[in-house]
């Protein structure tokens, strides 16, 4: 397999094959790059077909600029999937604002709740945390320790197993105390088989809180299951945004692209480490560059 798209384009440009043939080969390599970045296989084929059509229909510029042109079209199609080439707006459009974090076990919800609280606190908002995970041992302790670290209050009820009630009372308490951004951490769940009732619980929390935003927390390493999982979450409680965690590892994060396709939600942040400050606003160009395995997308897009 080719290491990256750069090689694919180089191969294409130096090749003596016809344009049609070269496009086909380029598409094949693109598919490989996307699949090994864990983009949903079906999504890869529909994306690459679109790209192929464009490459065949639109007129390529002089062969010198062809490489850039290829990348630009790939970038266009990928970025249109997640709402275009712009950084997301992460400042809430109203106050108070309630954010509910959901996701599969271990994806990084609790850590991210702390990070978000810290991010908004630094921006000058009055922030609070609510711990509504009643299953994981010491889930509330974890949130409390993070809250202590950044001096943000945490609501939880040790020993109570009514997640819906806890979430509701926590949010109400902080609303009455004029907190501006309230972040609700929930238990990890996937919702298959035995866990159908956990998905129901999530829906009940959602119905009780009517949060302004449901954020799906996704692990950068998630594979092909991302699409289906995200659809399930979206059905139970409309997902508005996505945060990709653990981007400091080697995983490419293509599963998040599948989640975007499944939910129509936008990616807002990425987590880049375990520490509380290791949260960055999502940058589409950098993300696509990572998915494609090439670093210089930025300069190419700028040039076009």
């Amino acid at each position: 397999m080719l290491d990256n798209i750069k090689d694919a384009v180089r191969k294409f440009l130096s090749g003596s094959s016809s344009y049609e043939q070269a496009v086909d080969e380029f598409i094949k390599d693109l598919q490989k790059a996307l699949i090994s970045s864990d983009v949903n296989v079906k999504l890869v084929f529909s994306l690459s077909n679109k790209i192929k059509e464009r490459l065949k229909k639109e007129k390529p510029p002089s062969s010198l600029e062809r490489r850039e042109w290829f990348i630009k079209i790939v970038y266009d199609e990928l970025s249109s999937l997640f709402g275009g080439d712009k950084q997301p707006d992460v400042v809430p459009d109203k106050i108070p604002y309630v954010i509910m974090l959901v996701g599969v076990q271990g994806s990084g919800k609790t850590t991210t709740a702390g990070k978000l609280a810290y991010f908004y606190k630094k921006k000058g908002f009055k922030v609070a945390l609510v711990g509504a995970d009643v299953y994981r041992p010491a889930a509330l302790d974890q949130l409390i320790q993070l809250g202590d670290l950044i001096k943000v209050p945490v609501y939880g009820e040790q020993g109570n197993y009514d997640a819906v009630g806890i979430a509701k009372r926590g949010v109400e308490k902080f609303l009455s105390e004029k907190y501006e951004i309230i972040i609700v951490d929930t238990a990890g769940r996937h919702g298959y088989g035995e866990e159908t009732k956990l998905l129901e619980e999530m829906k009940n929390i959602y119905d009780a809180l009517k949060p302004d935003e449901v954020t799906l927390v996704i692990d950068a390493s998630i594979g092909q299951k991302a699409f289906d999982l995200a659809s399930r979450f979206n059905q139970a409680s409309k997902v508005g945004s996505i945060i990709i965690t653990k981007m400091d590892g080697t995983a490419k994060g293509g599963g998040a692209l599948s989640a975007v396709a499944a939910t129509g939600a936008i990616i807002k942040f990425i987590g880049t480490g375990e520490k509380i400050e290791e949260l960055e606003v999502f940058n589409p160009r950098r993300f696509v560059a990572r998915i494609l395995g090439m670093g210089d997308i930025e300069t190419i897009i700028e040039k076009m």
Binding site: I35, S36, S37, D38, V104, G106, H190, D219, A220, S221, I222, G223, Q224, K225, L229, G249, T250, A251, K252, G254, G255
Partner: peptide, 15 residues
Amino acid sequence: LDSLAGNDALEQARY
């Protein structure tokens, strides 16, 4: 290893 992980699981295993 997490069974939900994709291609990176093999990277982790190698590492």
